[in-house]
């Protein structure tokens, strides 16, 4: 993001500037951002509920509804990854870097499994984005959420890479806390989405 790189003369000042205090700002700012981000989903959920209850043309012709069993399994994977990322954070808090990496990688893997599951489901559906307001809403909501999952996995990759810089995570990491918060957020959103789209079909 910076346009100019710091000159050597300024480097000693940098660690102090990015010290503990600035990290507190980062979390405050990040929580404010997440609150704002959750409003986008609230708006989309409200739109979905309005369409579902009031649209004269809901399911496209020939479509009976969505299968629930497979998405439920992937839901379990995604939601339980929230517990795994907590274990990773706890390991980092206790200074066990290796254990942190293992749990962190497992979370990334579970997120990836969810994304693959989403892709497989999309590939097998008998309707597309252009099939009425139902198709449009389904793909937009799941796609927008999937984009968040992908973002989460990529951010986790970044945090994992940073953990290999010696001493970088000795005092914990604001980035790890923020990504972990983001991941819980993405999971909670999915639970609501799952209830709206898969459970509430009748």
């Amino acid at each position: 993001m910076t346009a100019t790189t710091p000159t050597p003369a300024d480097l000693p000042a940098q660690p102090a500037a990015h010290g503990h205090g600035h990290g507190d700002h980062t979390l405050t700012g990040f929580v404010i951002f997440l609150l704002s981000e959750s409003v986008i989903f609230l708006a989309l959920f409200a739109g979905y509920a309005i369409y579902k209850t009031s649209s004269p043309l809901w399911l496209p012709p020939g479509v009976e509804g969505l299968e629930v069993a497979m998405p439920l399994r992937f839901t379990v994977v995604l939601v339980s990854s929230s517990g795994v990322i907590y274990l990773a954070e706890r390991a980092l808090h206790r200074g066990r870097l290796g254990e942190f990496r293992a749990w962190w990688l497992l979370t990334m893997a579970m997120g990836t499994v969810f994304l693959v599951g989403q892709g497989l489901e999309w590939a097998g559906l008998p309707f597309g984005l252009g099939d009425g307001v139902y198709g449009a809403s389904f793909y937009l909501l799941t796609g927008f959420h999937g984009l968040h999952v992908l973002t989460g996995v990529l951010l986790m990759g970044l945090m994992l890479a940073r953990s290999f810089r010696p001493g970088n995570y000795d005092a914990g990491s604001v980035g790890v806390t923020a990504v972990s918060l983001f991941w819980h957020f993405v999971d909670v959103i999915w639970v609501v989405l799952f209830v709206l789209i898969y459970v509430w079909q009748r």
Binding site: I50, S55, L57, G130, V133, Y134, G135, A136
Partner: peptide
């Protein structure tokens, strides 16, 4: 898409 197109069920 048909979010705002009544002919596709949108509003």
């Amino acid at each position: 898409t048909s979010f705002y197109r009544p002919e596709g069920g949108g509003d």
